[in-house]
Computed example of a mutant assay.
Amino acid sequence: MQTKPEKKQRLLIDGVLLLDKPVGLSSNDALIKAKRLLNAKKAGHTGTLDPFATGLLPLCFGEATKFSQDLLDADKTYETVVHLGVRTSTGDTEGELLEQREVDVTLDEIEAVLERFRGEIDQVPPMHSALKRDGKPLYEYARQGITLERQARRVTIHALELLGYEAPYLRLRVTCSKGTYIRVLGEDIGAALGCGAHLQTLRRTQVGNLTLDGCVTLDQLTEADDVQRERMLAPVDALLSSFPAVSLPEELAKRFLHGQRLALGRESVELPDLQSRVRVYALESGRLLGTAMLQAYGVLAPERLVAGRGG
């Protein structure tokens, strides 16, 4: 009688993989591949990239998944090539051709239009998106040829930079708030120029304080051995680098890990000047304990705590 092969035990791995997602792969497929290669027990991503897009996709493992929301809410930077004069059903290269027009615009006209899209703008989410209506993603309706009314959302374009223009291709760098659709931005710019447009390429270069520096590809992850793969992970607090740090001596660290609010005003603990979200460490070991809100009068209120692994 044949015995079943033993199921490989998943590992408790904590950290962040800065993945350079390839074109043609969904964010979830990229996560599944990376999770399998690292043999990790728990993993999640920090906001999706469309299959046709490439670039920075931070993947969280173990305790890092507790802080993925911070990156979902973070500003993001993209570089994109907008193909003027051609509209598609999805606003990118994956859709069907809807319309072609002649492109006859000047740099001055482009700059004038770009200025209209800087700052706070209203944007209608695309039908080809994962937003849900009655429990079903909009893209499922779109695939059935159904178009639903969508409400405009207020988003912020912090920076919109013209990198180059060789007709009909417009190269842009965009830094924007969460919830911004670069496909829609490209289409709206094309409409404002009177010729229509879709995205030819889209690459994410920054999420919060994280950049493409130190990014790895799935090919590099595949070719590495187990030890090398774990070394490719950034520490959990890579997600929290924008928060001020507070270090607690041993007794206060224990109380913090029990979820106790700490009145630090009379303690000899160095605190940031402003009331804000902070990352909290154990002074002696340097271990990340979690995040907290630093409130008035030096009160530290725990938010998310990090479980220790072993001793």
Rank of each mutant, 00 (worst) to 15 (best):
residue 260 Q to M: 11
residue 267 E to K: 08
residue 224 A to V: 01
residue 233 L to N: 01
residue 243 F to H: 05
residue 274 L to V: 12
residue 235 P to E: 05
residue 291 T to L: 07
residue 303 E to P: 07
residue 268 S to T: 13
residue 230 E to H: 14
residue 287 R to C: 04
residue 257 L to A: 12
residue 233 L to R: 00
residue 281 Y to K: 02
residue 296 A to Y: 12
residue 236 V to L: 02
residue 236 V to M: 02
residue 245 A to W: 05
residue 241 S to Y: 01
residue 272 P to W: 07
residue 224 A to G: 02
residue 287 R to A: 09
residue 259 G to C: 02
residue 225 D to I: 06
residue 238 A to N: 05
residue 225 D to T: 09
residue 283 L to A: 12
residue 267 E to R: 07
residue 226 D to M: 09
residue 304 R to Q: 14
residue 282 A to H: 15
residue 302 P to V: 10
residue 288 L to P: 07
residue 302 P to D: 10
residue 270 E to A: 14
residue 235 P to N: 10
residue 288 L to W: 07
residue 255 R to I: 05
residue 246 V to R: 00
residue 242 S to Y: 06
residue 275 Q to I: 08
residue 263 A to V: 00
residue 284 E to N: 14
residue 294 L to I: 05
residue 279 R to E: 15
residue 224 A to Q: 06
residue 284 E to C: 07
residue 241 S to F: 00
residue 271 L to Q: 00
residue 290 G to C: 04
residue 253 A to Y: 08
residue 292 A to I: 03
residue 284 E to W: 09
residue 234 A to L: 10
residue 262 L to R: 01
residue 277 R to N: 10
residue 262 L to D: 03
residue 267 E to S: 08
residue 237 D to M: 03
residue 263 A to D: 07
residue 285 S to R: 12
residue 258 H to Y: 11
residue 229 R to L: 08
residue 274 L to S: 12
residue 258 H to F: 10
residue 270 E to M: 11
residue 275 Q to H: 11
residue 224 A to D: 04
residue 231 R to L: 09
residue 247 S to C: 07
residue 225 D to E: 09
residue 241 S to K: 06
residue 302 P to W: 09
residue 260 Q to G: 03
residue 260 Q to E: 11
residue 245 A to S: 13
residue 286 G to K: 06
residue 286 G to C: 06
residue 279 R to W: 09
residue 299 V to Q: 10
residue 257 L to Y: 13
residue 296 A to F: 14
residue 272 P to I: 04
residue 295 Q to F: 08
residue 223 E to M: 04
residue 231 R to Q: 13
residue 278 V to P: 01
residue 285 S to D: 06
residue 224 A to I: 06
residue 278 V to G: 00
residue 222 T to I: 07
residue 231 R to V: 00
residue 258 H to T: 13
residue 267 E to H: 06
residue 268 S to A: 13
residue 237 D to R: 01
residue 278 V to I: 05
residue 231 R to C: 05
residue 266 R to G: 12
residue 254 K to C: 15
residue 233 L to I: 07
residue 296 A to V: 13
residue 254 K to Y: 15
residue 233 L to T: 02
residue 287 R to V: 04
residue 301 A to V: 14
residue 288 L to Q: 05
residue 298 G to L: 01
residue 271 L to K: 03
residue 250 E to D: 14
residue 303 E to D: 14
residue 255 R to P: 06
residue 301 A to G: 02
residue 283 L to N: 09
residue 243 F to Y: 13
residue 272 P to R: 05
residue 230 E to R: 15
residue 289 L to K: 06
residue 285 S to Q: 09
residue 272 P to T: 06
residue 230 E to F: 07
residue 256 F to D: 04
residue 257 L to S: 15
residue 256 F to S: 05
residue 250 E to C: 06
residue 254 K to W: 15
residue 223 E to P: 03
residue 266 R to Q: 15
residue 277 R to Y: 08
residue 228 Q to D: 13
residue 302 P to F: 10
residue 285 S to F: 07
residue 244 P to F: 00
residue 295 Q to H: 08
residue 246 V to N: 01
residue 295 Q to P: 07
residue 263 A to K: 00
residue 247 S to W: 02
residue 232 M to D: 05
residue 249 P to C: 08
residue 277 R to D: 11
residue 278 V to S: 00
residue 274 L to A: 12
residue 279 R to S: 14
residue 300 L to W: 02
residue 299 V to I: 13
residue 258 H to A: 13
residue 292 A to Y: 08
residue 244 P to R: 01
residue 288 L to M: 09
residue 244 P to M: 00
residue 290 G to L: 03
residue 294 L to W: 04
residue 223 E to S: 09
